[in-house]
Amino acid sequence: MSGKFQNPTQDPLLLRIFLSLVAIGFVALFLVLPLLIVFKEALADGLGKAFAAIIEPDALSAVKLSLLAAGIAVPLNTVFGISAAWAVAKHDFSGKTILVTLIDLPFSVSPVVSGLIYVLVFGLQGWFGSYLLDHDIHILFALPGIVLATIFVTFPFVARELIPLMVDQGRDEEEAAISLGASGFSTFCRVTLPNIKWGLLYAVLLCNARALGEFGAVSVVSGHIRGQTNTMPLHVELLYNNYDYVGAFAVAALLALLALLTLVFKTILEWRYADELAAMHRH
């Protein structure tokens, strides 16, 4: 690029520098600084103290609970996502628009509302509360409630990534496989799954990140029993309210590390499987 005959689709140098600085500045101020402060506060009393706050039994049980809740919610939503995508993308039926809109609904519902609805259904003052209690089934303030709230907030993630991807890929390959005598199940495993595997992985990754980090919805249904129904984000809040500032930021730093790890995996996925993902995002 020479100064005089500038490419007409390229911005002038000054504009480029200015816009780049605005972009970098905004990201630094709004995204990087909060991240830095988490690590700074966590290490305020040294690495040892931060580490101690993470391996303390209540923190470990919060880690375990978060992993367990995500471990149940993510596979269920994955199965749901695949099934919804198969029905929507590979078949024609009326009411498809409504179905897809309803699948997307939990995305724009406030997390607090997501918690509230399960209180109204399973709470002692709700629909099934007394029945469940009489049969000694605990949903609210126990693992099932936390899992349900987590499922709700991560509900559309897999479906909304897979549906456009599978629509884009069309039905020809599957139809060919079927006409050659393959069973439905083996068509799915041998034809569809290899086509969507990276998109699926990408969706599961995002779903998992959200599941581990959900606060508002889980907060409503958890009961906040230390060491029992506190997930990692709730444990951060508890420590924060407990004069244990370093501990709160140490667990927060652990969550931030998980977030960064998610971003790394996501970037690797995008970089290696750019074509499939690009196809997915073209919509």
């Binding site: 990140a209 959900e214 508002g216 709730l234 977030a259």
Partner: peptide, 9 residues
């Protein structure tokens, strides 16, 4: 990052 970082953090 804002998407992956838990809101409480």
């Amino acid at each position: 990052l804002p998407f992956a970082l838990p809101t409480a953090v």
